[in-house]
Simulated assay, not measured.
Amino acid sequence: MTEPLITARGLSLVAGRLTILNDISLAIHRGEIVTVIGPNGSGKTTLLKALLGLIRIKGEIVRRPGLRIGYVPQQYAPDPSLPMTVHRFLDLFAGHAAGCAALERVGIADAHDRQLATLSGGELARVLLARAIAAKPDLLVLDEPLSGVDISGEAALYHLIADLRDELSCGILLVSHDLHVVMGKTDRVVCLNHHICCQGAPHAVAQDPAFLELFGDRSDLKLYPHHHDHAHSPSGAAIHDH
């Protein structure tokens, strides 16, 4: 199995009397999509911020040397009083050519000269994704990437994310509430409620008592098969042949 892109061991965070995260351990490898699910307030965004080094936390986080990370935050609201075009926004994070190529890849090259504040929710989500992939990251971290996206655009955006995993040969860690699409596209599901309740391949997690306790019987979930260049261990982790 390849060296993990990022490994967390025993992550814990307590604020006053509130336990936000308790003894979280996980690893993310190149080529796999790992999705964190859980109820509101379960610590999902806090976990992502800890892995990104944005907050201090008890425990150990090991990142592969030279690891490049692309990040799409849960919320980004452009200030309409601060004019900024899409291309100027991307130029803040990547070279002009890389930004243009990323915009074209996510399907909104024609938004190049538009004001950020005028974009629809789906368009803004794609601009943020373009920013995240412009530097060709090893790990793409997405916190509720469909926030503000209408239903018709959700499946298309998840298809795009899965395609980017293959094209960039990167690992993807995402948080999502959209169980239908997540269960169809992810390799490994981590069910979080301040601690890891269960994790593994989607079909296994959907039948786990801890999952059922949080989400109820979700026999309606469509677990579409996915095809790529690795197998899975019983826990759902990707197993590569190199």
Rank of each mutant, 00 (worst) to 15 (best):
T2G: 00
L5I: 06
I6K: 07
I6F: 06
A8M: 08
A8W: 09
R9Y: 01
L11A: 08
V14Y: 00
A15H: 15
T19S: 14
T19I: 13
N22P: 06
I24G: 09
S25D: 07
I28E: 02
I28K: 01
V34F: 11
T35L: 09
G41H: 12
G41T: 07
S42K: 10
G43W: 11
T46S: 14
A50K: 09
I57C: 11
K58R: 15
E60G: 00
P65A: 08
R68F: 01
P73A: 02
P73Q: 04
Q74L: 09
Y76N: 03
Y76L: 10
A77R: 15
P78N: 12
P80M: 08
L82Y: 13
M84V: 12
T85P: 03
V86F: 08
F89P: 02
L90G: 02
L90S: 03
D91R: 15
F93N: 04
F93S: 12
A94V: 09
G95Q: 12
G99S: 08
A101F: 02
A102D: 11
E104H: 12
R105N: 05
V106Q: 08
I108C: 05
I108H: 04
A109V: 10
Q115K: 02
L116K: 03
A117I: 01
T118V: 12
G122F: 08
E123Y: 07
R126I: 05
R126H: 06
V127N: 03
L128F: 07
L129P: 04
R131H: 02
I133A: 06
A134F: 09
A134P: 10
A135H: 15
K136M: 10
K136R: 15
P137F: 13
L140D: 03
D143G: 08
E144F: 12
E144G: 06
P145G: 05
P145M: 04
G153F: 07
E154A: 15
E154P: 00
D163R: 15
D166L: 14
S169L: 06
S169E: 14
G171H: 10
G171K: 05
I172R: 05
H177S: 09
H177E: 04
H177M: 09
L179D: 10
H180Q: 15
M183T: 13
T186C: 14
T186A: 15
C191P: 08
C191D: 03
N193E: 08
H195A: 14
A201I: 04
P202F: 06
A204L: 12
V205D: 05
A206P: 02
D208S: 04
P209N: 07
G216L: 11
G216Q: 11
G216C: 08
R218V: 01
R218Y: 01
S219I: 00
P225V: 06
P225A: 05
P225D: 03
H226E: 04
H228L: 10
D229H: 15
A231I: 06
H232A: 04
H232C: 07
H232Y: 12
S233V: 00
S233G: 01
S233K: 13
P234A: 03
P234R: 03
P234C: 01
G236H: 10
A238C: 11
D241R: 13
